[in-house]
Simulated assay, not measured.
Amino acid sequence: MSNALRHRRGTAAVSLAAVGALALSACGGSDKGSGADAGEQKKTHTVQTAMGAVQVPVAPKRVVVLDTAELDSAITLGVKPVGSTHADVESGFLNYLPKDKVAGIKDVGEMMTPNLEAIAELEPDLILTSKVRHEDKYNELKAIAPTVMTEGTGFPWKENFQLHAKALGKEAEAKKTVEEYTAHAAKVTAAVGGKDQAARTKVNVVRFVEGADIRIYGRKNYIATVLADVGLGRPAVADKAKDGFSYDVSPEKIDLAGEDAAVIFHSTYGDPTKAKQTRTLNSALWKNIPAVKAGKVFGVDDQLWIQGIGYTAASRILDELQTDLTK
Rank of each mutant, 00 (worst) to 15 (best):
A53G: 11
L122H: 00
V79A: 10
P81V: 01
L232Q: 09
F265Y: 15
E159T: 15
A261T: 09
K293C: 07
G29A: 08
D248P: 09
D229V: 13
S250E: 14
G92D: 06
E40F: 09
N95F: 01
S91F: 05
G244R: 12
V249R: 12
L77A: 06
Y311C: 03
Q162W: 09
V79I: 14
T323H: 01
G244K: 07
V206I: 07
T68R: 01
K80A: 07
E159R: 10
E159P: 14
S246W: 05
F161R: 00
V108H: 01
A241L: 09
V205E: 08
K80T: 05
A262F: 10
T278Q: 14
A261M: 07
G39K: 12
T280R: 04
I216V: 02
A275R: 03
R9T: 12
D37F: 13
T268L: 04
A59C: 12
R133F: 13
W286C: 05
I216C: 06
D255F: 12
E210M: 12
G33L: 13
T11F: 15
P272C: 09
A69L: 03
E123W: 12
Y222H: 08
V226P: 12
T182W: 06
S15D: 10
V65D: 04
G104P: 00
G233M: 05
L141H: 06
Y96V: 02
T225G: 11
N160F: 03
N204F: 05
K42C: 10
A13Y: 10
T278N: 09
A236H: 14
V209L: 07
T326C: 03
A74F: 00
R279A: 15
K131M: 07
G78P: 11
K43A: 13
S315W: 01
